[in-house]
Design a protein around this nucleic acid. Structure first.
Length: 564
RNA sequence: GUGCCCAUAGCUCAGCAGGAUAGAGCGUCGGUUUCCUAAACCGCAGGCCGGAGGUUCGAAUCCUCUUGGGCACACCA
């Protein structure tokens, strides 16, 4: 629950604005309107732990050379009872802050006292957020897009949870509308083909060509034979959908479960039809004068969405579009269930819908800023250096189940979170299964296993992880020790930034960094055979590293093995 | 045609509410183990941040134009 870095940052902001005030009161500097003071971590270590460029930003108003003004500001600072040891003016007018080394030791104490909760912060306290992800069409198996969206969405939800938000994870089940019609037609065609031969019924060009459709019908025939052969076509399709749809949903649930992706709610699109919410929403849009009727259909006006084109809500055959249902769904999220923030994960091919959806909810009086859509670029699978294609249509899909069989859950989840969501992701199947340091997930897991093994050996010799109170942390002085410790101290801040940017990929990079620093430390510093007091301090550092790696991996739902 | 995303080391990518000498992993090459897991570590080499202008004390980062990739523009979802 403690984010020391954020606390220090706030402290520095406070010190700076007080110093400006003081300098103005004494007449050393003119009074200025300060913009938001940004405190950053300099790249160069010599530039201190924190730095600000505030003086350069306001140097024109100060009518004084930036360096001189910075000196004045520094002289007016009150640093008693802070972590700040030294303040310097540098370069063209930066103010650099060097922290007392004990801030690192306090961070270590925090890790030891918070343990499994270390890293958790209260950024989102009291805010209800929904993350909706995967939401795959239940007309077939999960594909690579769902796999990436699943890993991403699940980890975004976990990051927000760690950041203190009240998080709900949801899967929107598209169990109504046009694709279900198409599903029924596809099933029916396969059903008849299986019973009466390929030529008995041509397969619709835009139907679902996957093998799974045939498999469903083989199973159906095995159970019920040809009893639907002479039924009315509507009745037949309905019966076949009622057979296959629950099976598909069940398979999706099973696949996601073995992927470690969990949802709190499975929200049915059909329920929006049944409950009347869809009609209600359309009516509301009409009343708000957001719609126009033409060509026998009902359209949402383009101006509502900041677009030149109108969009169909209700077709001329009377059926609502997916878009209409989606508007009703979002109205449900915001107005019926009162979420403060809604995050949707969509494949990048849906980017055109973002502005439309925001416009649509705005027309119902919902602040569109409360909706964030994370668009993720699509995945290319590589095997033997060649693109492994996935296509539902050809039936040669590489499904999520296939992927998990081939590379396992840990590698899949980790790799899908190594790139920013907006970047294209090339998934190298060969690399993902390699148990070598080329494979980042093994590199990190190995660090955890190494630590666990070391602590186990020490325990066997009667050496336990000491308490902070019985340890002299000031003995940690080696470069490798301090660099590792500093990185561990940054974890809550990493959580904060990941939550703000909705980028869990930051955490996979972070944990690789921690693992790397640990390996360097391990190589440079002996633990087990060291003099007792130093050993205690190092054991505490090692155990703290274990806690952080474990916490990150757990957050990502990746196992942290004790031996490898 | 209109709109969105992307372009940084040989490869895969970070950095992009402007900051001080542009980073990491992999790959290449060279080292490290009588010692806690060598699935590790250390070191060398590698860059006109796609191109051209502009804003600024200061640009990989912001703006304009341009080139090359990906995607979207249905009474599909």
């Amino acid at each position: 629950m403690t984010n020391i870095i954020e606390n220090v940052r706030q402290e520095i902001k406070q010190i700076i604005s007080l110093s400006f005030k003081k300098a103005a009161e004494s007449g050393e500097l003119p009074q200025v309107e300060l913009p938001e003071v940004t405190i950053e971590v300099p790249r160069e270590k010599e530039h201190g732990d924190f730095s600000t460029n505030i003086v350069m930003q306001v140097s024109k108003q100060l009518k004084k050379a930036p360096r001189l003004a910075a000196e004045t500001i520094i002289n007016n600072m009150n640093l008693t009872d802070t972590y700040i040891e030294k303040v310097e003016c540098a370069g063209p007018g930066f103010i650099n802050f060097h922290l007392k080394i004990n801030w690192l030791f306090d961070a270590l104490k925090t890790i030891q006292s918070e343990k499994d909760n270390y890293g958790r912060i209260e950024l989102g306290k009291g805010k209800k957020v929904m993350v909706e992800y995967v939401s795959a069409n239940p007309t077939g198996p999960l594909h690579m897009g769902n796999a990436r969206g699943g890993a991403l969405g699940d980890c975004i939800a976990s990051v927000l949870d760690a950041a203190g938000y009240d998080v709900t994870r949801e899967f929107y089940v598209n169990d109504a509308g046009n694709q279900i019609e198409k599903f029924g037609i596809s099933l029916e065609a396969r059903y008849i083909q299986l019973l009466k031969g390929e030529d008995a019924m041509p397969f619709p060009e835009d139907g679902y060509h996957g093998e799974d459709i045939i498999d469903h019908m083989k199973d159906y025939i095995g159970l019920y034979g040809d009893k639907l052969l002479n039924a009315e076509t509507d009745e037949r399709r309905k019966a076949l959908v009622e057979f296959a749809l629950p099976r598909n949903i069940e398979r999706i649930k099973t696949a996601l479960e073995s992927y470690g992706v969990k949802h709190d709610f499975w929200f049915s699109e059909k329920s929006l039809y049944d409950s009347g919410e869809l009609d209600e929403t359309i009516k509301l849009l009409k009343e708000n004068n957001c719609t126009v009727e033409k060509e026998g259909a009902l359209w949402l006006k383009g101006e509502v969405m900041g677009s030149e084109k109108d969009e169909v809500l209700v077709r001329n055959n009377g059926y609502p579009t997916y878009f209409a249902a989606d508007i009703a769904y979002h109205r449900n999220k915001f107005l019926k269930r009162n979420y403060d923030w809604v995050i949707n994960l969509w494949g990048a091919d849906h980017h055109g819908h973002v502005a439309r959806m925001k416009g649509a909810i705005a027309s119902m009086g919902i602040n569109p800023d409360k909706l964030d859509v994370v668009l993720f670029q699509l995945v290319r699978l590589y095997r033997n250096g060649e693109i492994a294609r996935m296509s539902k249509r050809t039936g040669r899909t590489i499904s999520l189940v296939d992927l998990l069989e081939e590379v396992g859950r840990d590698a899949a989840r980790f790799i899908f979170n190594t790139k920013a969501s907006g970047s294209h992701l090339d998934f190298d199947l060969d690399l993902a299964v390699q148990q070598s340091n080329d494979n980042p997930v093994y590199y990190v897991q190995y660090a955890h296993a190494r630590i666990s093994s070391l602590l186990k050996r020490l325990e066997d010799e009667g050496v336990k992880v000491p308490t902070v109170d019985e340890t002299d942390l000031t003995l940690l002085q080696a470069k490798e020790e301090l660099e590792l410790l500093k990185r561990l101290a940054e974890y809550p801040e990493e959580i904060r930034i990941s939550a703000v940017t909705l980028e869990p990929s930051r955490l996979t990079r972070y944990v690789q960094d921690v693992a790397g620093l640990f390996h360097s430390f391990y190589n440079a510093c002996n633990v087990k055979n060291e003099e007792e007091n130093l050993r205690k301090a190092r054991v505490l550092l090692v155990d703290s590293t274990r806690i952080v790696i474990k916490n990150v991996l757990t957050l990502l739902s990746i196992t942290a093995p004790e031996r490898m």
